[in-house]
Design a protein around this nucleic acid. Sequence first.
DNA 1: GTCACGATGTCAGTGACTGTCATGCGGCTA
DNA 2: TAGCCGCATGACAGTCACTGACATCGTGAC
Lengths: 188, 188
Amino acid sequence: MGRWEPDARGRLERSALELYAERGFDQTTVAEIARRAGLTERTFFRHFADKREVLFHGSHALEELLVDAVAGAPDTAAPMDAIATALDVAGGMFEERREFARRRNAVVAAHAELRERELIKLASLAASLAGALRGRGVAEPAASLAAEAGIAVFKIAFERWAGDADGPDLPRLMRESLDELRAVTAGA
Amino acid sequence: MGRWEPDARGRLERSALELYAERGFDQTTVAEIARRAGLTERTFFRHFADKREVLFHGSHALEELLVDAVAGAPDTAAPMDAIATALDVAGGMFEERREFARRRNAVVAAHAELRERELIKLASLAASLAGALRGRGVAEPAASLAAEAGIAVFKIAFERWAGDADGPDLPRLMRESLDELRAVTAGA
DNA sequence: GTCACGATGTCAGTGACTGTCATGCGGCTA
DNA sequence: TAGCCGCATGACAGTCACTGACATCGTGAC
């Protein structure tokens, strides 16, 4: 055992989510988060670039997962089908963490600065997915457009999922939304 | 003539853009922006909610313009055709302000916090466009999906336009990107 | 002429974030 | 076993974004 309690980063993440949910993002100081985690403010900023980032540590893992899904889709799959594979994986991942995902989303949705951070994470995800599509031989701008369309589907399906605890599961909402997008963009 | 020089807000906007371009966003303090505009830091924050917002004052006007375009599209137009009308209007607007738009975009693209703000403005625009589509009788989630797809087209066309000063004009890139999106989402 | 109004200035305060140096446990090496 | 080093954390001072409260003073209504 080390000199300190283990998992400082995890303690900070949990303390931050609790406090943001209890009092709101603005009414929580970094010093309070650190104190609840048994650490100091300075240590918080060694683990997270800013007060928002503490809620977004998982986004990198999600990005890797989805990039792998796109890269691993059958060679014969069309670009949007590769994206659909990734959306399925994402839906499964969130469905496994229903409680946490919904609690975290409520906090993020309640504050504009946190929504901003969420949007730039999604933009980064779109860029990575576009890269994965290019790796499959898809040209620009088709790769970026397919990736952005996939993120649009993700956003809308996720929003509906988070807002209706008794509705369909997320993978299903993803598939329905993708079908809806195909319908609405069809035709000249 | 008033007690003060006129157009304080405009002076602040111009001073900010100049300084962000000259030294970078981080290396510019609000006090410096205000001093160059002949005002004080406190006055800056009376006009703009924060240091980033000074670059995004125009986004509200853009939003109104595009909402009107969607609302004013022919009754017979399909959802994506109404969106296409709005994209055409947007393309024209930026094309009229080529120089300014490109200079401003270079500043925004250079700093993650500014890109975040841009993304939330685009998300707000998407929400307004979805509202305009609902006003035309389009149901959810089709309205939101069409709006988000339109924003995806806008983002990618704008990026190509900003990155290639000698390329096609923006309305043309918008139309090409929309056609690409239709092609990539087509098929089951 | 008076008076309310509105845009700005002044000043003090909070809190996010950073740079720098100190501390002490665990492991490595002689 | 002794000395040393790396690494996670603490302590502390400093900058700057942003806010609240109050003062100032041309302008226009009456």
